[in-house]
Amino acid sequence: MSSETPKRYIRFQKPVVIQHYILMLSVLGLMFSGYMLYSIKSAETGFDPTDYFSYSLWEQIHIWFGILLGLTILWHFLYILFTLYGHSDFLHILPNKSDLKSLIGLGFRKSVIKKRRFGLQEKLTYWIIGVYLILMVITGLLQYANVYTVNYISRSLYIYIDGFHGMYGLLMGIILTVWHLYSIFLKPGRFPGTLSWWDGKISSEEMNRYQEARGEITDESDTGTGNPG
């Protein structure tokens, strides 16, 4: 083992990394197929996806990516409920008083930030994207079962559901994705980005930044300096 190999510390467990991969894939697939469905219905895009597939096929693609997303969310819930790391991470990412202080201090109170496993921005990202995805899944299911939905809800409510899951939902998704990518790659002090999304591990430098990061050692011969969370 070369001593020059930079030490990398586990920040996210493998299940979380895999969940994130599937999440990326399903969200990109849903955005793409959703845009295709929107393009069929709207002449504004100037593009006709039916040159390639019929509306039904685009719809099927969208549904299957939606199912993938739904299963990933289910897996994430089970991971939180029934695994030690999942449970611990969930407790860490729950909003608390420190977040409120941090929010009031607009994130400039370093002493508060350094003591936590997840920063304020990470927590916001998790909860905003999480809630957004759950809402998209629910509205998607309501649209899928539109006959039952329309039997029991008002036309106005269905229009809100349709609007949320449609173009506005897509726009929100794009905005959140851009924000998330900015946080990972472009944020000051983080450029050119972290590879923690790739293998769940962080460098020593990043380790120092995340005071509370889990310190499992990647190389067993290395004693490391991490601090298990």
Binding site: R155, S156, I159, Y160, G163, F164, Y168, L171, M172, I175, L176, V178, W179, Y182
Partner: peptide, 20 residues
């Protein structure tokens, strides 16, 4: 209704972008 829905969603998106 769709017009109202449109304004609400636009406001939501503008708010989101502003916060970001």
């Amino acid at each position: 209704e769709e017009s109202i829905a449109r304004y609400i969603f636009l406001a939501l998106i503008v708010t989101m972008i502003s916060l970001i």
